[in-house]
């Protein structure tokens, strides 16, 4: 948690203006202090203090809030200044609220038959704070609980009204991009059209992969392309365990596939568990889309 020191905060100045103004006016307990509620409370908490039973019993002091709870429609008793304060915070984006702590003081014990009334006041509004939950303001209200004219206890309640911290939207993890340049762009254009194009030397007719602007066998710079038929076998493979990379979940298998045409390429062997990939396994080409711009030729294991 930290103060956003030194920042102009007009909102805080406006919120401070509500300090001392009412948040509840002339509230009344829904039930008088009574033995059944005391008994339930003690049973739930396992409190066997004899002061809370029999003739002359008092209510456990910590029940103070129980006598003033508003029931299932909790906001009906809010005074206008408190509604305005909350609305200002909502408008500023502080739309979330969380109770942070409460303090109570007990001035005299309550006894069955006491009928409580109460008034609440906006006691303080903190400067803007940044917490793990988000940035906002701590608002403390103090409720004075009375029986008749007598103050019997006070209940301080603090909430954080905040704008939820925006977790930086993580872009979906994407595979490394192919490295495309003028020498190999034709291959990746083919992949987009679901074609696996091999270069064929214009002179010696040798097929080659990877793409290069000349023939390693005869040096001829001219070439055209042929479509691979898509059949191949695993020539070698690796199962990658460590380190992990975004967009990949180790362990995964990478194959060096020898195509029926006699050239090799690195790709993924899919449709087969990583630990079932073997050298010599027949594979068949398919195209998979990995994100809005990446289509890759991969090879599906053909199992017997």
């Amino acid at each position: 948690m930290g103060d956003d020191d030194g920042l102009d905060d007009d909102l805080h100045a406006r919120l401070k203006g509500y300090e001392g103004r009412p948040s509840t006016v002339a509230g009344a307990g829904r039930d008088p202090v009574n033995a059944p509620m005391i008994r339930h409370w003690c049973e739930v908490l396992g409190d066997t203090n004899p002061a809370y039973t029999g003739p002359g019993a008092t209510a456990p002091p910590t029940m103070l809030q129980a006598w003033i709870m508003a029931g299932l429609s909790p906001h009906t008793g809010r005074a206008r200044p408190y509604e305005e304060l909350l609305a200002l915070l909502d408008e500023a984006g502080c739309t979330s609220i969380v109770a942070t702590d409460c303090e109570q003081e007990y001035l005299r014990p309550l006894r069955p038959g006491d009928e409580v009334t109460y008034d609440s006041v906006i006691e303080s509004v903190s400067p803007r704070k940044t917490t793990k939950l988000g940035t906002g303001y701590f608002v403390t209200t103090r409720t004075d609980v009375r029986v008749g004219p007598d103050l019997v206890g006070t209940h301080r309640f603090r909430v954080l009204k905040y704008a939820p911290a925006r977790r930086p939207a993580k872009p979906p993890e994407r595979r490394p991009r192919p490295v495309v340049n003028r020498d190999n762009a034709g291959f990746w254009e083919g992949v987009r059209d679901h074609r696996l194009l091999l270069q064929r030397c214009a002179d010696c007719a040798g097929l080659r992969f990877p793409w290069l602007p000349g023939c390693a066998d005869c040096g001829c710079p001219d070439w055209d392309t042929v479509d691979a038929c898509g059949e191949g076998t695993v020539f070698s493979y690796v199962v990658l365990h460590h380190p992990p990379f975004p967009a990949f979940e180790p362990p995964y298998a990478i194959g060096l596939v020898e195509l029926a045409e006699g050239v090799r390429m690195v790709s993924n062997v899919v449709g087969v568990p990583y630990d079932k990939v073997r050298i010599g396994m027949p594979v068949r080409l398919e195209f998979r889309r990995y994100d809005d711009e990446l289509v890759l030729p991969v090879f599906k294991g053909v199992t017997a």
């Binding site: 490394p176 192919p178 990877p210 690796v238 990658l240 990478i254 993924n268």
Partner: peptide, 11 residues
């Protein structure tokens, strides 16, 4: 580009 043939497949 030479290394690029393997990168998209996680090698």
């Amino acid at each position: 580009a030479a290394l690029g043939w393997t990168l998209p497949f996680g090698l």
